[in-house]
Each structure stands twice: as C-alpha cells, then as structure tokens.
C-alpha cells in the first residue's frame, strides 16, 4: 500500500485526507467503502489520517477535508471552522453539505419551536435553521448527490491528486437519460426534474424508472418556466413539482417562487424559505 505513486513518470505526492460529518446519514462516506472492487486502489491514492467512522487513529494533518452533512446546531459551526483552518482544500461531500439536503426540509416551518415540540415535546433540545457549509466557510469543491456517486468521487479525487481542474457537467440529467436510451418518464406518467437538474449521476434514478428529485441541484441555465409547462402538459400538480424542488435544497430559490402559489400548504409553513441562493 505504500509504494511511491507516479503518473506518466512524474512522482506524485499522496495527499493526506480526512473525512468528517456534520448532520447527515453518513451515507456519503459509506459510499466510499461501498466501492469494494476498487477500494484498495482508491486507498492507495491517498493517505487517510482521519476517518472516525472507519478508523481509531485521528490526526489533524490533512491536506484535503471531505465534509459530509449540513450545519444544524451551533457547535457544528465551530467544528467546521476548525476543519477549514487545517485543510488546504475543503470539499463539500453530498447534497446535505452543498445545499442543506433533506435536513433543510424543516426550514419550511416558520416556527422552530413547533418543530422541536413536534418531535421532543417539552424536552429541551438545541437546533437551528439548516445551512449548507458555504454559508459559514469557503468551500473549494462541491460533490453533489444524495447519495454521491462513488465513480464520480473517485474521478474527482484522482483529478485532485493529479492536479487537474475538476469540472462538473453543465447540462441536465435529461441528456444522460436520453443517452441511456430510456423511455421518457413523462410518457410513463412519472414526474421528473431531469430537464433542470445537473447531470453527472448518469441518470441514476431515471434509468431505474424513478423520476428525478433534483438532488444534484440546478444545471447551468435551468429553465423552471419550461419545466412547469412540461409538468402542466402532463397533468402534474404544482405541489408535485414543489415536493421535488424543495426536497434537497439545491433549488431553494426556485421552490420559493412556487411556494406561495401552491394551492394548499399547512398554516405553519413559511411564505419563503431561509436560503436565498440556489
């Protein structure tokens, strides 16, 4: 596992990496272990110095920090700031880190006290409005997805090690879905955000006949008006689009424009969500 690395004859440094999690299901980190066929090769690329979920040793001497999860409690801001201080490159790993993820669904409610009471009754519990990492620290690279796609992470990490520029596809999932020769889900009666969601997942859900819920956030120049029209043509309720747009936080500003127009919404819901950018 420790022979020197080289690429095209040029010796490469093996970067020290750390994995960290804030509020999350820790699934994105597990996706890395879920990579049995190439796991050992992948581990050869980097030196892991901090990975609480997988190892006992802990070090702060990492070059690259992968941070999963969103910020939902004050102490997480301090943890995140400390990680930022140690890391040369901070990577937001997965939709929770990039956009708030499913966690930010609780931001729909105006009254945080109601949210607490709904789950914990009167037991005192600390929480706050959910934020993505970039609301508190500089994020150098975002890896989208709920969950992240392991092949994509491996490619990105390889690019980082080789010093290449990391690029995300600008086109939508729809393109990948068409390239996979799938029947369009609209034709099968299934709502889908494929036309406006950033590609890179190889149409993971839609190739399994599951409509896209937009976990990777908007593609460049995503056209919400057009999507609304398609959805209307196929007879889907505005609320069906809203459920998907607001699920992971990547389309927060889009969801905001739709929310006040929704036919029915619980009285406790906000007119606008907390997050402004998308």
């Amino acid at each position: 596992m420790s022979e020197p690395l080289s690429y095209l004859g040029v010796p490469l440094a093996r970067p020290k990496v750390g994995f960290f999690e804030l509020s999350s299901c820790e699934g994105c980190q597990l996706q890395l272990l879920n990579n049995e066929a190439t796991l050992l090769d992948f581990l050869n690329l980097v030196e892991i110095v901090n990975f609480r979920e997988g190892m006992s040793e802990r070090g702060d001497n990492y070059d690259i920090a992968f941070v999963e999860g969103s910020v939902t409690r004050k102490d997480e801001i301090a943890r995140l700031t400390a990680i930022r201080k140690h890391a040369k490159i901070l990577v937001a790993l997965g939709s929770c880190a990039c956009f708030g993820g499913v966690n930010q669904l609780k931001n729909r409610f105006r009254d945080l006290e109601w949210v607490k009471k709904e789950v914990y009754d009167d037991f005192p519990i600390e929480t706050m409005e959910v934020h993505p990492l970039a609301d508190f620290v500089q994020v150098d690279l975002e890896i989208f997805g709920c969950p992240i796609k392991k092949e994509e992470v491996e490619r990105i990490v390889t690019d980082l090690v080789l010093g290449k520029t990391v690029r995300h596809p600008e086109y939508p999932v729809c393109m990948e879905c068409k390239a996979n020769e799938n029947i369009c889900l609209f034709e099968l009666g299934e709502p889908c955000l494929g036309p406006i969601t950033r590609a890179g997942c190889d149409a993971w859900c839609t190739s399994n006949r599951r409509g896209c819920w937009g976990c990777r956030g908007p593609a460049e120049g995503a056209n919400l008006k057009q999507l609304e029209e398609i959805m209307r043509t196929y007879g889907f309720a505005r609320e069906t689009i809203l459920d998907r747009l607001e699920c992971f936080g990547g389309f927060a500003s889009f969801a905001d424009t739709l929310r006040p127009k929704a036919k029915k919404s619980p009285v406790t819901q906000k007119a606008t969500a907390g997050r402004k950018k998308s």
Binding site: L105, R108, V115, V119, I125
Partner: peptide, 9 residues
C-alpha cells in the same frame, strides 16, 4: 448527535 427532525419534516 444533532437531531434532524424527520418526523416534523
């Protein structure tokens, strides 16, 4: 661990 409030969501 931080609570995520799935039941409220």
């Amino acid at each position: 661990e931080t609570p995520r409030f799935f039941e409220a969501m």
